[in-house]
Computed example of a mutant assay.
Amino acid sequence: MRTWLGEQAQAQADRLTLWAPVAVGCGAAIYFALPREPMAVVGWALLALAAGLAMVRARLRPSGLAKAVLVLLAAALLGFAAGKLRTEAVRAPVAPPGEGLATVEAYVVDVASPGQSGPRLLLAPIRILGLAPDATPIRVRMTLKPDMPLPAPGAAIRIRGMINPPPPPASPGAYDFARDAFFEGVGGVGFALTPPRVITPAAPPPWLLGLQMRLNAARWSLAVRIVQTMGAREGGLAAAMVTGHEAYIPKAEVDALRAAGLAHIISISGLHMAIVGGFTFAGARLLIAAWPWLALRLSGKKAAALVGLAAVLGYLALSGAPSPAQRA
């Protein structure tokens, strides 16, 4: 067994660049598996240690087993530190349990994918009556009743509803909604009891939030125009694939896609990014090749790649930058 392990390690000696991300993931997994939360200084210390190991490797230039140990250990420490520092960076207030009924004044950041009960809003609270500013969540996801008006992103609204902390897993090992909400900055979830009412805020939003809301408002406006032009049936699907907004897809159509195993089509991911990037790349390269003067003075492949990358980045912003699209 020992001989076999040595042979395998030797065979993988030239593949450290492929094993380094695995080590980073293992380090992050160790952090998330800890029974207790370490102090923030641990993350910074391990980050410094990882940098030190990388400097030792670069200066001493070891070979064989020593090189592999240094690289993989530094990568694992980097993964642990990244998990801890990311946790500290997104840490935000969470709605206290048992608060229940609350009046919220907030900006509409985006119209999230609809839930089973109705459309959902992602809100950036200006204030929640009864909560101190330092205890107010920075983001709240609220579900509206199907008959309530749907405000556009960027609007400032007042709404009354039930707000609770994100729920924990329903059973051991089940989907942990609270963990995902924590890393998305969502500190409260609930449902509206009164229709949202547009208000005039006392001060403008922070510039970064304002930029995000303007982009989301453009996405929402485009989705509405697509549905108005194509109709609810075809337009709802087209709007979902272009802007990421699934609010206009009829429930019967969503159920049919799930039954057919095709629900992933309306989730913007690698397939959509490849289509946009691939067709843009091919079109740009064809246009460059069709202009002899430009084709003789410019690398058509590199120029087309830059155009394709720009198109993919634009589509990423237009689609709301969901996690599958970011990975792609």
Rank of each mutant, 00 (worst) to 15 (best):
L208S: 14
N164W: 13
T280H: 07
R233F: 04
A174F: 12
I226N: 02
A252H: 13
A203M: 08
A192H: 05
N164G: 12
W207Y: 10
P172G: 09
M230R: 12
F279K: 02
G161W: 02
N164V: 15
G278T: 10
H245V: 02
I226R: 01
P168I: 07
D255M: 11
L211S: 14
Y248E: 08
G236S: 05
G210W: 03
R219L: 04
I226S: 03
I266N: 00
R214W: 11
A192P: 05
W220A: 14
P169V: 08
A202R: 05
D180V: 14
I268T: 06
G235Q: 02
Y248M: 10
A202S: 13
G161E: 03
G236D: 03
M162G: 07
R258S: 12
L208Q: 14
G210D: 11
D255E: 15
G185F: 08
G161K: 03
N216M: 06
R197M: 01
M230G: 12
F177T: 13
H272C: 10
I199C: 00
E234I: 13
R285L: 11
N216V: 01
N216C: 03
E253W: 09
A274T: 15
P206T: 07
Q228V: 04
T200Y: 00
S269H: 06
V276T: 09
F183E: 09
V276Q: 09
E184F: 12
M241P: 01
R179D: 12
T280A: 15
H245A: 05
D180W: 13
S269M: 10
A239V: 00
F191Q: 08
I199E: 00
R219M: 08
P205D: 04
G283A: 11
R197Q: 09
D255Y: 09
T243G: 01
G244I: 00
T243E: 01
F279W: 13
I159A: 00
P166E: 10
D176R: 04
G187F: 06
P168F: 05
R225Y: 03
K251W: 13
G277W: 07
D176F: 06
R285T: 06
A174T: 04
F177K: 10
P206H: 06
A284R: 06
L215F: 12
D176W: 05
V276Y: 05
Y175C: 02
R225V: 12
P201I: 00
E184S: 15
I268M: 05
G277I: 13
F281N: 13
E253P: 01
G188H: 05
R160D: 10
I226W: 02
V242Y: 01
G187E: 05
M273E: 11
